[in-house]
Amino acid sequence: MPKQMTCDVVVVGAGMVGAACAYYAGLAGMDVVVLDRGAVSGGTTGGGEGNLLVSDKEPGPELELALLSLRLWGEIADEFGAAVEYEAKGGIVVAETPDALAALDAFAARQRASGVSALSVDPERLRELEPHLTLDALGGVLYPQDAQVMPALAAAHLLRASGARVETGRTVSKVLRRADGSVYGVRTGEQGDIHAPFVVNAAGTWGGQVAALAGVHLPVLPRRGFVLVTEPLPPRRVRHKVYAADYVADVASDSAALQTSPVVESTAAGPVLIGASRERVGFDRRLSLPVVRALAAGATRLFPFLADVRVMRTYAGFRPYLPDHLPAVGADPRAPGLFHACGHEGAGIGLAPGTGHLIAQLMCGQPPSLDPHALRPDRFPEEAVTDDRP
């Protein structure tokens, strides 16, 4: 006989954002069930670099969410620390042309007005901060607040600490709704229904599909990116997260075409991670040699010593993209009881605690830590985005 469970909230998705939603709901005393058709961190989280960034965010709703999340990441680090490989390494954005440097300085000035620590540095100071950086750099901005975690570890620890029942390999086939339109749980095929007054859509790149199971529209599309992983290197060859100034423009771009901009950072285990690429090609995971070559060329331009370092592997991940580059966070008035926590694109790891905290506050009827209006999930017209996979 199909199993029926009762709880306070069902979270669909066991990645970093789903884990954060479960964690903060658990802290609020809620009984939580987390479902995922795959494994914990089996989607975008497992393909992420673990960046916790303010350096790439314009003043506005996303930056506000990032600053809230950084404060919460500090609390998480105090609790879990080395277990999630939290590293407050800081970030450096590098400019290689006068125009890029002027644009970067103007961008940093706007961020400082919104509470970001952004320190302009000249070429001599850049060499002190990153001794192996290219001599072509004309200057940059140091962001001390940027940090990094190991995302799969962080998601696992938050899920464990949440007290949630986690069921992997369980696919949601329908979001259950009453005649008045309100949500009362989910259906998981032959595995039965789970009844709950709240359902949280934390399905990442598949958030649009889960929304559709509730009969509502959320135009989430996958934006593919590749990461190169080098052989282990001695500690502190790359001391910060370092990226070129054009990375910020690529993040904000609406183009479906391939874009690459060099992003380089070390990991606690020794390998260096190299990105970043962006393109909308549906869920195509096939290796792209042009992308790999472009990433390698960009990385060696920033750090020439990498030309003599072996790449051990490369992998692809899919960022959950929404057309205005803001996540969908909050209650869906079209389906009372349904909450969305998805569409964070490449910032999901960093924005996860703030997202989970807001969702828990809203479910509990508490005043939210920031105004979620700009993130409301019903802000998109039905024709906002079409699926542009080949």
Rank of each mutant, 00 (worst) to 15 (best):
residue 2 P to S: 05
residue 2 P to D: 05
residue 4 Q to P: 11
residue 9 V to F: 09
residue 13 G to L: 04
residue 21 C to H: 09
residue 22 A to I: 06
residue 22 A to N: 09
residue 24 Y to A: 04
residue 24 Y to H: 06
residue 27 L to Q: 11
residue 30 M to E: 06
residue 32 V to W: 05
residue 37 R to C: 02
residue 38 G to R: 15
residue 38 G to S: 12
residue 39 A to T: 15
residue 44 T to L: 13
residue 44 T to D: 10
residue 46 G to C: 10
residue 47 G to A: 15
residue 48 G to F: 07
residue 49 E to A: 12
residue 52 L to M: 00
residue 55 S to T: 12
residue 56 D to N: 04
residue 56 D to K: 07
residue 62 E to T: 13
residue 66 A to Q: 03
residue 70 L to V: 00
residue 72 L to C: 07
residue 73 W to R: 14
residue 74 G to F: 08
residue 79 E to H: 15
residue 81 G to R: 13
residue 87 E to N: 14
residue 92 I to E: 08
residue 97 T to L: 13
residue 98 P to F: 02
residue 98 P to L: 09
residue 98 P to R: 12
residue 102 A to G: 08
residue 102 A to F: 07
residue 103 A to R: 15
residue 104 L to Q: 00
residue 105 D to N: 10
residue 108 A to D: 04
residue 108 A to T: 07
residue 113 A to W: 12
residue 115 G to K: 05
residue 115 G to N: 03
residue 116 V to E: 00
residue 119 L to S: 08
residue 121 V to A: 01
residue 123 P to Y: 11
residue 123 P to A: 06
residue 124 E to Y: 15
residue 127 R to Y: 09
residue 128 E to F: 00
residue 131 P to W: 11
residue 133 L to P: 02
residue 140 G to Y: 15
residue 155 A to H: 05
residue 161 A to E: 05
residue 162 S to P: 07
residue 164 A to R: 14
residue 165 R to S: 14
residue 168 T to W: 15
residue 169 G to E: 13
residue 174 K to C: 00
residue 174 K to Y: 05
residue 176 L to S: 00
residue 178 R to F: 14
residue 180 D to W: 15
residue 181 G to W: 14
residue 182 S to V: 02
residue 186 V to I: 01
residue 203 A to E: 07
residue 209 Q to M: 03
residue 210 V to G: 13
residue 211 A to Y: 01
residue 213 L to I: 05
residue 220 V to I: 05
residue 222 P to N: 08
residue 224 R to A: 06
residue 227 V to Q: 08
residue 228 L to G: 01
residue 229 V to A: 03
residue 234 P to S: 09
residue 235 P to T: 14
residue 236 R to P: 04
residue 240 H to I: 07
residue 240 H to N: 06
residue 246 D to R: 08
residue 246 D to T: 06
residue 250 D to M: 14
residue 251 V to E: 00
residue 252 A to L: 03
residue 256 A to E: 07
residue 258 L to C: 01
residue 260 T to P: 01
residue 263 V to L: 09
residue 269 A to F: 00
residue 270 G to E: 09
residue 272 V to D: 01
residue 274 I to A: 00
residue 276 A to S: 03
residue 278 R to Y: 08
residue 278 R to A: 13
residue 279 E to H: 05
residue 280 R to E: 14
residue 282 G to F: 10
residue 283 F to W: 08
residue 285 R to Y: 13
residue 287 L to D: 01
residue 289 L to H: 10
residue 291 V to T: 12
residue 291 V to M: 10
residue 291 V to E: 02
residue 292 V to T: 05
residue 292 V to S: 10
residue 297 A to H: 03
residue 299 A to Y: 02
residue 300 T to Y: 13
residue 305 F to V: 04
residue 305 F to H: 07
residue 306 L to K: 06
residue 308 D to Y: 11
residue 311 V to Q: 06
residue 315 Y to D: 05
residue 317 G to L: 09
residue 318 F to W: 13
residue 319 R to A: 03
residue 333 P to G: 03
residue 337 G to I: 04
residue 338 L to M: 06
residue 339 F to H: 10
residue 341 A to N: 01
residue 350 G to M: 12
residue 355 T to R: 06
residue 357 H to Q: 07
residue 361 Q to T: 00
residue 365 G to H: 09
residue 365 G to N: 09
residue 365 G to P: 01
residue 367 P to N: 00
residue 371 D to I: 08
residue 372 P to N: 00
residue 374 A to F: 05
residue 375 L to I: 02
residue 380 F to E: 03
residue 381 P to E: 06
residue 388 D to W: 15
residue 388 D to C: 15
residue 388 D to H: 15
residue 390 P to S: 04
